[in-house]
Design a protein around this nucleic acid. Structure first.
Lengths: 231, 231
DNA sequence: CATTGATGAAAGTATTACTATTAATTTTTA
DNA sequence: TAAAAATTAATAGTAATACTTTCATCAATG
């Protein structure tokens, strides 16, 4: 019996559920590839329509605009990350080991998951690194947040923050550290690849251990430090 | 005798130097206000032209496109930050105190600097928080970097990294920590303002001490931690 | 077999991101 | 101070983007 993983996506992110039709799954699958190759700015529904042999109008029946499609993709990734964390930490006894596992998952080059045939997680990971902050760095954050479009991110951060609290119940910044872990991993990976004088991390042929070491260093030194409030 | 601060901006960022004409200074001054109110996506040269009572064509004689204008503004900010760091740390004896000063500067709501009448640093600071990562999160990073468009960021990070090395010469991640400080301060400030369940930091009526405390906590606990390479 | 729903095809609109041309105005310099 | 050069404004134009609308076709469902 195969396990089917269904990542929940907030219904305000789409007009018609793309998981429920061939065209929909095609839109998802090809948009990932196209955004990866063109970058989000140059990506258009027109180009996507041509790539999947459909029309702009048909894609607009699934997604209001390309921004919501991007949030959909990134949300899927957040949901998938949370699932992976759940799945691989539930058998771990010590909170500290759980946190190490989380860092491992975050800083891992994602590989193809046969459970979701039309989504290539490795490519999606590259999109997340390069595009995810564009999801919220807009003038509509507040409204989009109220609409619930970022629930998956919220949920992921809560999960990680709770494990941080398990490690050190009196740690004053569990959420800050959790969101910082995620964002730092994206940034530093991007810097290492494209602007390497901004970082000491050297990431060659898919070996992400330098990133993992840095994240462990930052997270554990923070969690175990004695907090002295200056002023 | 007044001190005139001249921030150096790489010449590839503009077609005609905006500092050298009224129209140019107007473009800079108004673009800051417009990007702040509209957000970078909705900001256009057309709207800017109307705002300053000029024409699109005239603005295009100064800047190739709005992306380069954004890099110009952000570069100005990076240069200004570096100047402030230089200026306010050169009389400080201990490296650790210098680093504390840097954190203070980074996490400070910037106030109006009468030396540069047409640039409102407080508004520019908001733009930096919301838009700076869009400067490099594009498909052209590599080329734009080769053109030298990010020298000011590079220089700023080097300066901070050197002070980190002064504090602990054997610290293995001076650049990573330096870029992480800057990026984290933007992100967490943005989260605190717009998506506050992503952080524990509470920033009300311009009191940024929570941000400063967190940055000090992260930076100093990292710098003074014993580095244990896992694996 | 009649209806509903999904998709495709085609056309249309407002806006964006530019470029080009010419004319008016200001600045430089001889 | 007049002529030349540079700058800016005004206007128009183009290709692409980000959609919307309408209508026809086809498949599924009841």
């Amino acid at each position: 019996m195969a396990i089917i993983v269904q990542i929940q996506i907030h219904k305000n992110l789409f007009l018609r559920d793309p998981e429920k039709s061939d065209l929909g799954r095609n839109i998802i699958g090809e948009s990932i590839k196209l955004i990866d190759t063109l970058g989000f700015e140059a990506f258009t529904f027109k180009k996507l329509a041509i790539a999947i042999g459909s029309t702009e109008a048909s894609i607009y029946r699934y997604f209001e605009n390309k921004h919501k499609l991007l949030i959909y993709l990134i949300s899927w990734y957040w949901g998938w990350l949370e699932f992976q964390i759940d799945y691989s930490t539930n058998s771990i006894e010590f909170a500290e080991d759980k946190l190490k596992k989380i860092i491992e998952i975050i800083s891992e080059a994602q590989s193809y998951d046969p459970n979701v045939a039309h989504i290539d997680e490795a490519i999606l990971n590259r999109i997340v690194v390069a595009e995810s902050s564009k999801v919220y760095l807009t003038k509509n954050v507040i409204d989009e947040n109220k609409e619930g479009l970022f629930v998956n991110y919220k949920s992921l951060i809560s999960k990680i923050a709770n494990i941080i609290k398990e490690v050190n119940a009196s740690y004053p910044y569990p959420r800050t550290l959790a969101s910082n872990m995620i964002e730092t991993s994206h940034e530093q990976l991007f810097f290492a690849k494209h602007l390497n004088w901004l970082t000491d991390l050297r990431i060659d042929n898919g070996d992400l251990s330098a990133l993992r070491n840095f994240l462990e260093h930052i997270v554990f030194s923070a969690i175990h430090a004695n907090i002295i409030k200056s002023n």
